[in-house]
Nucleic acid binder design. Sequence first.
RNA 1: GUCCCGUUCGUUCAGCGGUUAGGACUCAGGAUUUUCAUUCCUGCAACAGGGGUUCGAUUCCCCUACGGGAUACCA
Length: 471
Amino acid sequence: MSVVTRFAPSPTGYVHVGSQRTALYNYIFARQQGGKFILRVEDTDQNRYVEGAVENLLSSLEQLGVEFDAGPGKEDDKAPYFQSERNDIYNREVKKLMDEGKAYRCFCSSERLEELRNEQMAKKLPTGYDGKCRNISREESDERAKTEKFVIRLKTPTEGLCEFRDIVRRDVKIAWSQVDDQVLVKSDGFPTYHLANVIDDHYMGVTHVIRGEEWLPSVPKHLYLYDCFGWKAPQMAHLPLLLNPDRSKLSKRQGDVAVEDYLKKGYTPEALNNFLALLGWNPGGKNEIYSMDELIASFDINKISKAGAVFDTKKLDWMNGQYIKNMDVDKYLVEARKWLGDVKVKEDKLNTALMAVKTSLATFKEIPEKISVFTGEAVEPVVEAKEMLELDSTKAVFEAYVEKVSKLDKLTVNDFKVVMKEVQTETGVKGKNLWMPIRIGLTGDMHGPELGYIVEYLGKHENIKRISRYI
RNA sequence: GUCCCGUUCGUUCAGCGGUUAGGACUCAGGAUUUUCAUUCCUGCAACAGGGGUUCGAUUCCCCUACGGGAUACCA
């Protein structure tokens, strides 16, 4: 049977990087197995509706190149892909459960439930529904349903052990006594995650459920539901969580968690995917840079690690820098131009300036700062730089430099090289004492991109003007 | 409280009964470069603790500690 995986986020308004990794693993595994990857929107919680969230979700996935084969906008015979539009299916299936006595209406108030929980906690007992409405007769239940609010609960086993195999966790055992009579249908008539998830996965033909570790304790409920329906359960793979530097669950409070945040900070989709894919799994070997195709080729679902991984952006920075350095020149130039911000650069010299900083970027967002050496005025030299300017040799270099440059019509990178050669011959100064004063004289700074680029960018007159100040 | 899951350098990932415990990032030092960056080389740095099993445990089992998750009419 062909593999079908799915990414099933609830539309919260942004894509969490942890979700992105889950989506990535589902996508990669499906592609590798020659299977199908589907996107399903889990929007059964009416209270959590966020305007524009679906558009945002779709756009984030598209930007990162995680392409689904079926989903919103790509409907097929399994559609709809919004859970909020599938209520007929859920109702139909729940009725079966009710008729077979595997689910029941519960009329308990939320106040009673809360009280119950507090009592159980106080007595150091496991918390959970006590089954008060479990044995109400169908007749009485039907009657009360006409006037009272209710939810529908699953009648889960009360004793024994639920044992199952997880691709990541291997063998897991959970006692049924720990499993609550899960609410399947809320009082507003919408299904809970547990119900909708199982029904959808079944009807959509999902073969592998790859999702976050937070779902592991719910697996018995899901397995039992498959059982009640007489369906074959998919294989499960519960991924380790992404963590904050203090090892708590990665959260907004301790930094950016949305994919779009990182895109806005100038990280490339390729680097972000590469980085995320290697958090929890690694093909081994020296190389850490993998294109999507390479990830698909080398991914091994059986080698996903069990422990949570800290989302440390240091490595992301390095990785992103690698992607920028190795980026095709044309692509780089197009992308880099989007990040100029307020910096005003002469159009005819823009490419020169951008190429000069290509190898020094960690993210695109650094571009304005990095190319400001071209566009800005010279900064005030630091002490060490000033000392350099006061050297006797510097005076000779500057005079010779101005003299040579004055004779030229224009000043290109190559002209500059020739000039420097001549200055060196004439003054006898070479090495650091030759080059550094020119750099400082022009920019005021001791560091920066290759001098030739700067010289060419500034042009003949500006060169003369800036150097002359120190003669 | 109860249950589940986890624990190898600071971070990340290898290792799957016998290894000088390996790679990558970070950091430090060096080489190259007119500077910074790049690139290259070198170095620092880890098996949470305690019991077993075994001729031999980082690898298998148990306990403890620590961390995380779940415990919702949220997903």
